[in-house]
């Protein structure tokens, strides 16, 4: 088997590229969570803003990934970062915004109005209400958004190799340009395996976390 031989001879490089890929996706989604979750909470308190924000995030999602990377190049050329890591990260952050913002928004909105009413009526401040009641209740849905964002960016991250971001996409890009089938296959399989295993891992993590904070009402 050509693929097995390829893996045998290049396993160190595959491992390294996988780590690169994880780093790329981890950084992008990490930043997306830090920006997206507060943003989702904010628009859940400000209905007028919500539609606009969700529409814009939706539009970004519809831009084909390769085109978005293309758009990044001239913009980042202005600061001499045209190709490479930075534009890739920014594009991936933009992609992961929508599922995170949308799920946070929906999750907070869907907290039982009676529960919210009780929290306000008992004299919780807005911050206490968020931290003690709304966020714990919204957690599973926000987490679902994060998982979606991660799987999405692992896939799109492979394309980022075309603008020199590194990661497993490198094998696919190189394989295509040199017509090396085994290399393409190894790249593709590695990307899928990574996406699936991280999703399963996060699912387990979420389950463990939620069993403590039971969500049924």
């Amino acid at each position: 088997m050509e693929i097995l031989e390829f893996v045998q001879t290049n396993w160190l490089e595959i491992l390294q590229m996988t780590l690169e890929h994880i780093e790329l996706v981890g950084l992008a989604v990490g930043i997306a969570i830090i920006t997206g979750v507060p943003f989702g909470i904010y628009i859940s308190q400000r209905e007028s803003l919500a539609n606009l924000v969700l529409a814009v995030a939706g539009i970004i999602m519809t831009i084909p990934s390769i085109a978005l990377f293309g758009i990044m190049i001239p913009i980042f050329s202005l600061i001499n970062q045209g190709i490479g890591y930075l534009p890739a990260i920014v594009a991936l952050i933009l992609y992961s915004q929508l599922p995170i913002i949308r799920n946070t928004y929906i999750a907070i909105k869907n907290v039982d109005p009676n529960v919210r009413d009780a929290a306000i009526g008992m004299g919780m401040t807005t911050f206490q209400r968020l931290i003690k009641v709304e966020l714990p209740l919204a957690f599973p849905v926000i987490m679902a958004g994060v998982r979606m964002a991660i799987v999405l960016t692992i896939g799109i991250g492979a394309i980022a190799a075309y603008i020199g971001a590194g990661g497993l996409g490198g094998y696919i890009a190189r394989g295509i340009s040199t017509s090396y089938a085994a290399m393409i296959q190894v790249g593709a399989i590695s990307v899928s395996t990574l996406a699936i295993s991280i999703d399963v891992l996060l699912g387990k993590f979420q389950k463990r976390f939620s069993s403590r904070e039971s969500i049924k009402s």
Binding site: D112, N114, V115, D117, A118, A119, G121, L137, S214, S217
Partner: peptide
């Protein structure tokens, strides 16, 4: 403050 659907915090 007590409401009809108890409003207990499920978490």
């Amino acid at each position: 403050y007590v409401i009809q659907h108890n409003g207990l915090f499920p978490n």
